[in-house]
């Protein structure tokens, strides 16, 4: 027993909301994606902690799936960033407002 589980989850929560803040505050698509990565890692930390807490391997397996999924997501979203940059010459999220109602 190294630390109380609450402390691990608290760290994860801090990381998670920092990632959320990054997504909300930054306007560059790259930084928004980075914020998403931070949040995903926070989720991974909770999963690993849960795995240790319940003495079961499943949490760690889910981190593996999480990573696989993240790499898929990142590859596609970065490809989209490149594509948008090519088409519109910008990576600022607020410049894309063709969907305005």
């Amino acid at each position: 027993m190294i630390v109380p589980v609450l402390h691990v989850v608290a760290v994860a929560a801090i990381l998670f909301f920092m990632g959320l803040a990054c997504i909300l505050a930054r306007r560059s698509l790259i930084m928004i994606l980075i914020g998403a990565e931070i949040m995903l890692n926070a989720a991974g930390l909770v999963l690993v902690a849960a795995s240790a807490y319940w003495q079961r391997i499943d949490g760690q397996l889910f981190v593996l799936f999480l990573m696989a999924m993240t790499s898929a997501e990142v590859s596609i979203s970065l490809a989209l960033v490149v594509y948008l940059r090519r088409r519109q010459g910008t990576v600022v999220a607020d410049d894309f407002r063709k969907m305005s109602g």
Binding site: L20, I23, L24, R27, I32, A93, D94, F96, R97, K98, M99, S100, G101
Partner: peptide, 18 residues
């Protein structure tokens, strides 16, 4: 009025989620 909600800005949508 409702149209204003659909601003087309990703940041607004994300703010809504938060």
């Amino acid at each position: 009025y409702l149209r204003l909600v659909v601003s087309g800005r990703v940041s607004h949508y994300l703010g809504g989620v938060a």
